[in-house]
Amino acid sequence: MRNISTLSAALAVVLAGCAPAPSESGSASTQSAHTEICKATSEQEISALFDRWNRSLQTGDPHKVVANYAEHSVLLATVSNKPRLTPAEKEDYFQYFLKSKPMGKIDWRTIEIGCNTAIDAGLYTFTFGATGAQVKARYTYTYKWDGKQWLITTHHSSAMPEKS
């Protein structure tokens, strides 16, 4: 019966994706391979990550923008056909993108929070200070808590396919 109890506890840990439940003796289960501690967060904290990214655009410094991304992350940008995987590739993209003086504004969003992960997906509008042009786009940002800060692991943006 103890094996079934241990198996049930291990299964609950895997399904929950967070720290193991205490064992019957009161200590954490040593049989679980997954011992991640989940960072408490909120929708407000996750929505502020876009604001942090948008403020980094205002600096005009591609290096400051790329600092928002995890080392192993993917940028699928609105105005580039090339997936950007390395920090150098992202900096190359932002070197070009920042010349147009972009400023983003969230039009609609939904946020989902997991254990040390979050997804912010929705619609935004970019206004380009260099020309006054606007582009409406869809976006998805996935984030991971690295133990110190939230970093972007995936950023996908694509222009709206239907003109309004």
Results as ranks from 00 to 15, higher is better:
Val13Phe: 08
Val14Asn: 14
Val14Pro: 03
Leu15Phe: 09
Ala16Ser: 08
Ala16Gly: 09
Ala16Tyr: 11
Ala16Gln: 15
Gly17Met: 11
Gly17Asp: 07
Ala19Trp: 13
Ala19Asp: 11
Ala19His: 05
Pro20Phe: 06
Pro20Ile: 10
Pro20Lys: 11
Ala21Leu: 08
Ala21Gly: 06
Ala21Lys: 12
Pro22Asp: 06
Ser25Ile: 02
Ser27Asp: 14
Ser29Leu: 11
Thr30Ser: 14
Gln31Ala: 04
Ser32Arg: 08
Ala33Arg: 13
Ala33Thr: 15
His34Pro: 03
His34Cys: 07
Ile37Pro: 04
Cys38Ser: 01
Ala40Lys: 04
Ser42Glu: 01
Ser42Asp: 02
Gln44Met: 01
Glu45Ser: 04
Glu45Cys: 15
Glu45Arg: 11
Glu45Asp: 13
Leu49Tyr: 01
Leu49Trp: 04
Phe50Gln: 01
Asp51Met: 00
Asp51Cys: 00
Asp51Tyr: 00
Arg52Gly: 06
Asn54Leu: 03
Ser56Lys: 04
Gln58His: 04
Thr59Tyr: 02
Gly60Ile: 04
Gly60Cys: 00
Asp61Trp: 00
Pro62Asp: 01
Pro62Ile: 08
Pro62Met: 07
His63Lys: 12
His63Cys: 06
His63Asp: 10
His63Ser: 04
His63Val: 12
Lys64His: 04
Val65Ser: 00
Ala67Phe: 00
Ala67Lys: 02
Asn68Cys: 07
Tyr69Ala: 07
Ala70Asp: 01
Ala70Asn: 13
Glu71Met: 15
Glu71Phe: 10
Glu71Ile: 10
His72Pro: 09
His72Lys: 10
Ser73Gln: 01
Leu75Met: 12
Leu75Ala: 09
Leu76Met: 09
Leu76Thr: 07
Ala77His: 02
Ala77Glu: 01
Val79Arg: 06
Asn81Thr: 11
Asn81Met: 11
Lys82Met: 06
Pro83Trp: 03
Pro83Val: 11
Arg84Ser: 07
Arg84Met: 15
Arg84Gly: 03
Pro87Ser: 02
Pro87Val: 10
Glu89Asp: 08
Glu91Ile: 03
Asp92Gln: 07
Tyr93Gln: 05
Gln95Glu: 13
Tyr96Asn: 14
Tyr96Glu: 03
Phe97His: 01
Ser100Asn: 09
Ser100Gly: 11
Lys101Cys: 04
Pro102Val: 05
Met103Arg: 13
Gly104His: 15
Lys105Pro: 14
Ile106Gly: 05
Ile106Ala: 02
Asp107Gln: 14
Asp107Trp: 03
Trp108Ile: 06
Arg109Glu: 05
Thr110Gln: 11
Thr110Tyr: 04
Thr110Asn: 09
Ile111Glu: 01
Ile111His: 02
Glu112Val: 08
Glu112His: 11
Ile113Asn: 09
Ile113Thr: 08
Ile113Lys: 04
Cys115Lys: 12
Cys115His: 10
Cys115Ser: 10
Asn116Leu: 06
Thr117Pro: 02
Ala118Glu: 09
Ala118Gln: 14
Asp120Ile: 07
Ala121Ser: 05
Ala121Gly: 05
Gly122Cys: 10
Leu123Glu: 15
Leu123Asp: 05
Thr125Tyr: 14
Phe126Glu: 14
Thr127Asp: 12
Phe128Leu: 13
Thr131Ser: 12
Thr131Asp: 08
Gly132Ile: 08
Gly132Val: 14
